[in-house]
Design a binder for these strands. Sequence first.
DNA 1: CGGATTGAGAGAGCACTGCTCTCTCAATCG
DNA 2: CGATTGAGAGAGCAGTGCTCTCTCAATCCG
Lengths: 215, 215
Amino acid sequence: MKRAEAREQMHAQILSAARQEIAVHGGGALSMRAIAREVGLVSSAIYRYFPTREALLTAMITESYGNLAEALASSGADRKRNLARRWETLGRAFRVWSMSNPHEFQLIYGTPIPGYVAPAETIPAAEAVAVHFLATGAQGPVGAFNSTALSRQVGPIAGALDLNPSGTAAVIAEIAALVGMLTAEIAGHFVGTADPADHLFEAFLRRQTTTLGLS
Amino acid sequence: MKRAEAREQMHAQILSAARQEIAVHGGGALSMRAIAREVGLVSSAIYRYFPTREALLTAMITESYGNLAEALASSGADRKRNLARRWETLGRAFRVWSMSNPHEFQLIYGTPIPGYVAPAETIPAAEAVAVHFLATGAQGPVGAFNSTALSRQVGPIAGALDLNPSGTAAVIAEIAALVGMLTAEIAGHFVGTADPADHLFEAFLRRQTTTLGLS
DNA sequence: CGGATTGAGAGAGCACTGCTCTCTCAATCG
DNA sequence: CGATTGAGAGAGCAGTGCTCTCTCAATCCG
């Protein structure tokens, strides 16, 4: 029993050290050896806990999705009656989290690390994030996304969550758009045009609620 | 004279080899030594042409922006009278280019390579891409983006290109949204919901032309 | 209680990386 | 024709992910 506890503690300690590393140097630069040094282990010992760098990254991605989902859950959005306000609250919470944890954001939504392919086990974690937006924005139909082919594709999840198909497709696109906005801001692509991007982001949220028919 | 020619040829040869490397392994995995091997040089000789890996990446980014801008220019969009059709043509050309050159796309719009910061010299190259969308979509006002603070920020470029300020801000956001859509598709984030994403993308373009008041 | 088993950690080593340094030698310039 | 330049070679440094073998303490079981 004790053995298992110690193991779990070491596991957590490594993840924590990795998180610290990533916050400074970014995900692509994550070094197994540096983590080992930080937790006071020799490099090879790390591999007792994570068989490969990729495994460590996957664990971190899952964790980051969880952190983000939690930030959305505790934004107070779900206590709001007005759907437009609710969507805006979610959007702002997303942005605040992303700006506070840019490297975690990039870990999830950025270019995969060289050769890295997100494994299936990260999908439920990603869904935990999407669900907040779907529940808020996909209740009604959205004209531009009203196509039979598209509805058939998103049918399963729309059905499972009791949502409107065209609304569901629209929200999926709007999540991607939101991520695009934040990626651009973090990468500094707005410098010279709309940086700081606060006003642009607020206008963007207004546009989204209009598109989704929430206002 | 001959000397300078040979140097320029070697320069181009290295870039070409790097491009080939990137197409296979992605930007983060770009190896100076592998490039050297491919062009038949010893590793240290590469540094006669690019003082650092970062310099090589910058050169590649600029080149990629150029390729993308050229793909947009030769899409035939600017021959179209109908602005909505024109925007859709640009969007589709962007998507085709991105799907054909995913690693180049990620080089430009993805997570910066560990420790890499896009230097100022890539900005004009990025503008060459944006200009196509601005010229097409930013002629009229867009309600959600009509704020004085925002208009003041984008004022300079809107003025320089003789565009509507709120329309300009809207197009900037829509470019980011478009990039977000393509990033998600390339990263496989639509798998399980809307993959293949053709229909979602077409609906997305419809939504954009509506938002921008082009239809 | 005592021997067998397990597994965490150590350490050496392999093949790779970006980059620096010094050396050679052929092409160019004056 | 001699001096200068600069491309390329080669060795080397500090770092990487990962593998292998070894040790030794903690646990398990008869």
